[in-house]
Design a protein around this nucleic acid. Structure first.
Length: 884
DNA sequence: AGAATCACG
DNA sequence: ACGTACGTGATTCTA
């Protein structure tokens, strides 16, 4: 009498089956971080079914350990024609293992053996033990050879969860032989999919006939003279080696050196906490609800009952005393200039919505929005703040910003659209703006329609309902402080900076513009003469034709579509033909003209002569800001001609100064701090020139040797390379040294800065284990490609793993500094105007210059406490150009 | 709409 | 062997 039931699962083959069963909906199975989840999903569905059907007492999932096994040693071509496992599947394997663990199931793999052999060995042990009944779950018919009185083999059929159950009787009915004879049949016929041959011209039918007649391969050869058919006999004799080898290859090992004991395999059942987390991470709603942890059910948005807000029911708003959710709709992304077209306000099941914008400034509405007692839930606090500010309302006490929280939880798939974000967090039935308003030229908002009112009230309700759940997520990620102490605060700091704006003198730009125009006309004529014809210099295609087809200059680089004519190529070609230098000059000036002269002139507000950029707070993957409409983070500085553009950026009051303070080497200081590298930290503590010190170290100079500018330049490139997640190829490409030399530099670098080397290794391991990396403030970036089989994708993810904590921590630091700065500047007239990643720009009245000289650097360098000090450098002058 | 180019940190 | 530096935005050309 058996008391125990052992379930043995062939992990790889079930994962493959699951993956190919769902191949047509591959892209529908993706989680927040872009990971494909189809095989994980299918695998779990299969687990559910078999656990339910079989109710095992003990379970093990066996995995293949790697490509090489004793079979490949015996026959190197074994499985040699298998296509590479697609990335979309291989990236899922680590998660399938995690799933198995969270479901309370042991897994095992054994180098040199396939999962089959582990299963065969354990099944044999269990049969010998006597107390066990064994069930094997696989996608591979080969395992049916293990069928016995005590062991059934269940093979999953493609495309369904249905299983084909093999008992000894079923094997005989279906195959006409005993389970133990399956390997003899395979020996004679070989196996195409595993890529090993048997006997020539012997297929399924002949093999079966022979084995039925004689019993085994050995018996066939014993009785070789009794075989009818001259050709058959000849083939059998010729391929005897192959047949015997094929039988060995097909035979599952039943005595593999498996280290797990039967006692270790008790089925523990689901680890609810872990499994809930896992399902949430995967976005498995149906599995979550099966667990009874039905979080999404509460989040599901049903029909929203709402009233149209009018002067008549305005007083009903007084019912909201503690908390409201609010959505302000605008007809364009640029909230500095867009029209306000409607708003929705409410909480729980009380909702009000309107397109009558006069009601926004009515007392009951203003009282709520500017109340410090009533908490506000919004989507995009900065946008909402600026929008309300334009009608004279100050938004106070924002608790939940759904856009920000969603971004912090996962930067990858973040969106500015409530509907899209809501979908990411479990709401299925909310429309996106694009669905309601259309897109591109066809976009049209019709504020008077019921559809419009319904849409924005749904958005507000989604914010209201997701608020607790998303805060819980944030807490689980250990990101609550990041949100409350940094992100929500910086939103208002940025809002104020954007509203303040920076004054740009249009006359300065126009004067520069007319000079550029003349220069462009001159250079254009020269280029046409040199080319012998007129053409569009701005067209890479036409320019390529002139340079490479007509003038036959050497083709150094190609793009997808033709010849590359980028700066690095043209600089190399410049000595060959004078036209090239002229093209470079033309390019440079036309860039300045179109982007910075014409571009800026277009966005100067005529009333205050200022530009009001928008900082995108939820876009970058590292936590940096970006700046649009206009982008004030890429105003020229590197070339003197371009730098002149900065003369147009001036203080908004006469006699004031433009002030600029920047962190010196912030990324390398962060690197020194988080890697803990003693040598690099020493350099910063001693106030050394880090690039010179690096040069001394990697080039092995004595302490009194002079570091030539060239050596310093090379060392600087290596320092940068390290921050970007270096490779010899990349370094070589970017600095013009040979790859071999680059390799040598990096080797020396890691010898001199061993802490940095260890960090680069550790951080990649961390990313592989956790699927993400973090900054000092727990900002997270998911890196699903870290598991990719595709070298490019994986390498990119590895470099990102190294770079993101550096770049992102630097971003954290300046954000903290900005928040502190806003407070520190409260008693002053000095205003913070711009942020350019490691630099802050201010306008300062003359009489506060002495104060800010100390104050601004002090606030910046005390933002965080690192292992080494932060250094701040400041410059000021009557224009941005002069602040140098 | 996407590619190429070039502006910044 | 594989083939690349990290993070952005604006403009222009081209399909």
């Amino acid at each position: 009498m058996t008391t125990k039931k052992l379930l043995l699962i062939d992990g790889n083959s079930i994962a493959f089956k699951a993956f190919y069963a769902l191949i047509n909906s591959l892209e529908k199975f993706k989680n927040n971080s872009g990971l494909h989840t189809s095989a994980i999903y299918g695998f779990n569905r299969m687990l559910d079914k078999v656990l339910e059907d079989e109710k095992p007492t003990d379970v093990l999932v066996a995995f293949d350990a790697g490509k090489t096994t004793f079979r490949t040693k015996l026959f190197p071509e074994y499985k040699g024609n298998r296509a590479k496992t697609p990335t979309e599947l291989s990236e899922q394997f680590p998660f399938i293992r995690e799933l198995v663990k969270d479901r309370g199931i042991k897994s095992y793999e054994l180098p040199n053996y396939e999962a089959d052999d582990i299963i065969g060995t354990l099944a044999k042990k269990a049969e010998a033990h006597g107390d066990y009944q064994v069930v094997i779950l696989t996608g591979d018919r080969d395992l049916t050879q293990l069928t016995s009185d005590k062991t059934t083999v269940q093979v999953s059929k493609t495309g369904t969860t249905a299983l084909e159950k093999y008992t000894p009787q079923y094997v005989e009915e279906k195959l006409g032989v005993k389970p133990s004879q399956i390997v003899d049949i395979k020996g004679l016929m070989g196996d195409n999919s595993d890529h090993y041959p048997g006997v020539e011209k012997v297929g399924k039918i002949t093999a079966k006939k022979l084995i039925q007649q004689f019993g085994s391969i050995e018996d066939v050869y014993q009785n070789i003279d009794n075989i009818s058919g001259k050709k058959l006999k000849e083939h059998l004799l010729n391929d005897r080696d192959k047949a015997e080898r094929a039988k060995v290859l097909a035979t599952i090992k039943r005595d593999a050196p498996v280290e797990v004991a039967l006692d270790d395999l008790a089925y523990q059942g689901d680890d609810l906490d872990q499994l809930t987390n896992f399902y949430e991470q995967m976005g498995f709603k149906s599995f979550l609800s099966k667990l009874g942890v039905n979080k999404t059910a509460t989040a599901e948005l049903t029909s929203v009952k709402y009233q149209k807000l009018t002067t008549a029911n305005l007083t009903e708003l007084a019912q909201f005393k503690d908390e409201i959710s609010f959505y302000l709709e605008m007809d364009d992304d640029n909230y500095h200039t867009a029209n306000l077209v409607g708003f929705a306000i409410g909480h729980g099941d009380q909702w009000f919505v309107t397109n009558e914008m006069a009601l926004l400034t009515s007392k009951p509405v203003v009282d709520i929005l500017s109340s410090s007692k009533i908490q506000k839930n919004v989507f995009d606090a900065k946008r909402t703040y600026v929008g309300l500010h334009r009608v004279g309302i100050e938004l106070v006490n924002v608790d939940f910003d759904m856009l920000l929280v969603s971004y912090l939880l996962n930067t990858t798939n973040n969106s500015n659209d409530v509907g899209t974000v809501a979908k990411l967090h479990g709401f299925d039935n909310i429309k996106t703006d694009e669905e309601v308003y259309g897109k591109g030229a066809k976009k049209s908002i019709k504020p008077e329609t019921p559809e419009f009112l319904s849409h924005i009230v749904h958005k507000a309700k989604a914010i209201d309902q997701l608020h607790n759940e998303m805060f819980e997520e944030l807490d689980k990620h250990n990101q609550t402080k990041l949100y409350r102490d940094i992100e929500i605060k910086i939103a208002f700091v940025l809002a104020k900076m954007e509203i303040t704006g920076i004054k740009v003198n249009p006359q300065t730009l126009e004067q520069m513009g007319s000079k550029f125009k003349e220069r462009l006309a001159e250079i254009e004529q020269t280029i046409f003469q040199e080319a012998g014809e007129t053409f569009n210099i701005g067209s890479p295609k036409q320019l390529g034709h002139i340079l490479f087809e007509k003038m036959h200059l050497p083709i150094l680089k190609k793009t997808k579509t033709g010849y590359s004519t980028s700066v690095d190529v043209l600089e190399k070609l410049a000595p060959d033909a004078p036209i090239v230098q002229n093209v470079l000059n033309y390019r440079q000036i036309s860039k300045l003209q179109s982007t910075y002269i014409d571009g800026l002139l277009k966005v100067i507000h005529p009333d205050d002569s200022k530009v009001h950029t928008r900082y995108l707070q939820t876009l970058t993957q590292t936590g940096r800001l970006s700046s649009v409409d206009p982008n004030l983070q890429n105003i020229p500085i590197r070339s003197e001609e371009g730098r002149l553009i900065r003369q147009a950026f001036v203080p908004s009051h006469n006699g004031w100064q433009i002030w600029s303070s920047d962190y010196s080497q912030i990324e390398l200081r962060v690197l020194a701090s988080i890697t803990g590298d003693a040598n690099m930290q020493e350099a910063f503590r001693e106030g050394e020139d880090i690039h010179a010190t690096t040069a001394r170290r990697i080039f092995g100079l004595a302490s009194n040797d002079e570091v030539t500018p060239e050596l310093r330049r090379q060392a600087k490139a290596v320092n940068f390379g390290i921050v970007y997640g270096i490779s010899d190829y990349g370094l070589a490409n970017n600095t013009g040294i040979s790859r071999k030399q680059a390799h040598q530099f990096i080797k020396r670098y890691f010898e001199e800065y061993p802490g940095v080397k260890k960090y680069t290794e550790d951080i990649v391991d961390f990313a592989k284990d956790h699927g993400y990396v973090e900054t000092i403030a727990h900002r997270r970036r998911y890196l699903p490609d870290i598991h990719s089989r595709n070298f490019n994708l994986r390498s990119f993810a590895e470099r990102t793993a190294m770079n993101t904590p550096i770049q992102g921590s630097a971003a954290d630091i300046i954000k903290i500094a900005m928040i502190n700065m806003m407070t520190a500047l409260k008693p002053l007239k000095t205003r913070m105007l711009l942020q350019v990643h490691d630099e802050l720009i201010f306008e300062v009245p003359e009489d506060e210059l002495e104060t800010v000289k100390k104050l601004i650097p002090q606030v910046m360098d005390s933002a965080v406490k690192l292992a080494i000090p932060l250094k701040v450098e400041s410059h000021w002058g009557k224009t941005w150009y002069d602040a140098k």
